[in-house]
């Protein structure tokens, strides 16, 4: 069909425009490159997704509060957590306004002891998380980058993870004198291998991506590849793993205390408190339940925060 005939039949008057507009417009090269920038930024989106849930905000506030309080408690209160009372009147008191969590069989204030216990348990857990994730990441990077290490590392991994952790922890803690250091060594000597394997798998997938090969072609030294190409891509995993490591360490400490090979009896940790409370559980259940409740709140909060952060840091969830 002939075009010029066709368009005349139904061309509506309303489509007639000023004839001047049908002149060529100048071409702007810079304008043509503009795609329309998205408002995306990895960390902003991660934090936004993370804090979208009110429960997470509440938990983060709670955990920060507990950590802050456990370190600042001595400033606010002069109650000595180790002060033993010789007066029978002060023993095994029920929770009241003067003793929020009551007192134990020696008349010590459980509320004060809980804060001191939190502090010690936190310190221990932070140290363990630091060493587990730190050593694990370094070993994982070496493992991922060096194929020759593979057979050795897999053997070490198999041996260490196949021995039940409880047996291992109990044995080590039993051999050495009970102290903070012993507990740290027994937990840290084992925790890194799981982290190492986790990071090895992640680094393996990053290692062969094209931008890393590009760096290799440009002759980028290993140090800069690590700091610019790898760590920025796994920093979210580091944070997540550290957050998940803390409740695990606190839990292990409590467990060791529970079976009696944890900390020395006079050390104030959550594990020891739960352990002490166990003896008089039938008569004075609050002596065990209240520290256990604190413990639960802390571990659950850290688990939820760690997992929620893992979800939030996944770009697929950034909607």
């Amino acid at each position: 069909m002939n075009r010029s005939e066709h368009k005349l039949c139904s061309f509506p008057k309303s489509l007639v425009r000023n004839q001047d507009l049908f002149a060529p417009a100048p071409f702007n090269a810079a304008e043509s490159e503009k795609t329309g920038a998205s408002n995306y930024s990895y960390w902003k989106s991660t934090l936004r997704t993370f804090f979208k849930s009110k429960a997470v905000v509440a938990l983060v506030v709670l955990v920060c509060g507990i950590i802050l309080m456990s370190f600042l408690y001595p400033v606010f209160s002069s109650v000595d957590p180790t002060k033993v009372s010789t007066d029978r009147q002060d023993w095994n008191l029920r929770p009241s306004l003067t003793h929020l969590f009551g007192t134990d069989g020696l008349g010590r204030d459980i509320f004060a002891r809980a804060w001191y216990g939190c502090r010690n348990s936190f310190l221990l857990a932070f140290c363990i998380a630091l060493s587990d994730v730190g050593i694990g990441m370094i070993m994982g990077a070496l493992w991922g980058y060096n194929k020759k290490l593979d057979p050795i590392m897999i053997e070490i991994y198999n041996i260490m993870t196949n021995v039940p952790s409880t047996v291992y922890l109990v044995l080590l803690a039993y051999i050495m004198n009970t102290s903070y250091l012993t507990l740290f060594i027994s937990m840290a000597s084992r925790g890194w291998i799981v982290e190492a394997r986790f990071f090895r798998n992640r680094i393996l997938s990053i290692r062969d991506s094209e931008y890393n090969i590009a760096s290799q072609c440009l002759g980028t030294p290993m140090r800069r590849i690590a700091t610019r190409n790898i760590i920025p891509h796994i920093i979210n995993l580091i944070i997540m793993e550290a957050a998940l490591c803390i409740p695990y360490s606190i839990g292990s400490e409590v467990f060791l205390g529970f079976v009696g090979v944890g900390m020395p009896v006079d050390a104030i940790t959550l594990g020891n408190m739960v352990n002490h409370g166990r003896g008089s559980f039938t008569l004075h259940p609050y002596q065990m339940l209240l520290p256990a409740a604190v413990l639960c709140i802390i571990t659950v909060a850290f688990y939820v925060i760690g997992n929620k952060f893992a979800d939030a840091s996944d770009p697929r969830n950034h909607v």
Binding site: F27, A29, E31, S32, E33, K34, T35, G36, A37, S38, N39
Partner: peptide, 11 residues
């Protein structure tokens, strides 16, 4: 063709 195709963010 010059330039770049528009993304959803472009007005």
């Amino acid at each position: 063709i010059q330039g770049t195709p528009p993304s959803l963010f472009k007005e």
